[in-house]
Design a protein around this nucleic acid. Structure first.
Length: 248
DNA sequence: CTCTTAACCTGGACGC
DNA sequence: TGCGTCCAGGTTAAGA
């Protein structure tokens, strides 16, 4: 990459000086993902990005005029520009020196599609925990990547009520839950994600998983399984919908 | 250590 | 039409 342009000094957090001082001239030697963080590896270290809920990264032709919320440009050797746009600025751009692990990555739980994630793992981690199973499953130190949409769908699929205390769910039910999380995530990815408002995937198309949601965003609507009206409440400051007949 | 709450930010939906 | 208000999202910081 030949240069970095910052149009503002911060996103969610200040953009560290290394992004401007160390990146230009470096070769990108790797691209990785951990949880919802992206890592762009160079010799002196890695740029650490999170797209928040509204961020996007796109490779555009050189001289593409910047528009609203285009916060960062990286000029590539090809002449094209890698552009980071994030209307709501929940995303971040940070720096991880080579050989170190950023604090944000240090205490993350396993990847949900990896072998480290299982019902037995969840069962073990949940003993003695009084928080709701929903809050527990959204805790990034327990398992990464499960946000408000997919936790709702996973709990429905597993038949577990979201307010149930995490420490009071049996090993067998955690087995069902782990399987549900895997199935939901894999299917949603295959469907191109979930478009709620303005999300589009890298191909510029919306995600289609929304059409297959069973409970998320469907408070007071009919349960697709039993027909009863879905319940709605808030858990951990987040909207929560579930079926009190199908989920116990 | 665990749990809860507030905060970050903007655009869109809604009510007046 | 225009304005104010509320909410969504992922995640962490701070406080209890």
């Amino acid at each position: 990459m030949t240069g970095v342009t910052l149009r503002r000094p911060d996103l969610r957090w200040p953009i560290p000086a290394e992004i401007s001082s160390l990146l230009p001239g470096q070769e990108i030697i790797g691209l990785r993902r951990r949880a919802k963080y992206l890592l762009v590896d160079t010799a002196p270290g890695s740029a650490l990005l999170h797209l928040g809920m509204s961020g996007s990264l796109r490779v555009l032709p050189a001289n593409t005029p910047a528009t609203a919320h285009d916060h960062v440009d990286v000029a590539l050797d090809s002449g094209k520009v890698l552009r980071f746009n994030d209307p709501r600025r929940f995303g971040c751009l940070l720096w991880q020196p080579a050989g170190s692990i950023h604090d944000l990555l240090r205490n993350l739980g396993p990847e949900p599609l990896s072998d480290d994630f299982s019902g037995d793992y969840l069962f073990d981690r949940s003993r003695g925990r009084s928080a709701s199973i929903k809050t527990f499953l959204m805790d990034q130190s327990i398992v990464v990547g499960v946000g408000n949409i997919y936790v709702a769908e996973s709990l429905f699929r597993a038949g577990i009520a979201p307010a149930r205390q995490a420490g009071r769910v049996s090993r067998d039910r955690y087995g069902a839950l782990a399987a549900a999380v895997r199935a939901i995530l894999a299917h949603a990815i295959q469907r191109g994600g979930t478009t709620l408002r303005d999300f589009i995937n890298p191909d510029g198309a919306p995600g289609y998983f929304e059409q297959e949601l069973f409970v998320y965003g469907r408070e007071d609507e009919a349960c697709k399984r039993c027909g009863r009206a879905l319940k709605g409440s808030r858990l951990g400051n987040r909207a929560t919908a579930w079926c009190s007949h199908c989920q116990k």
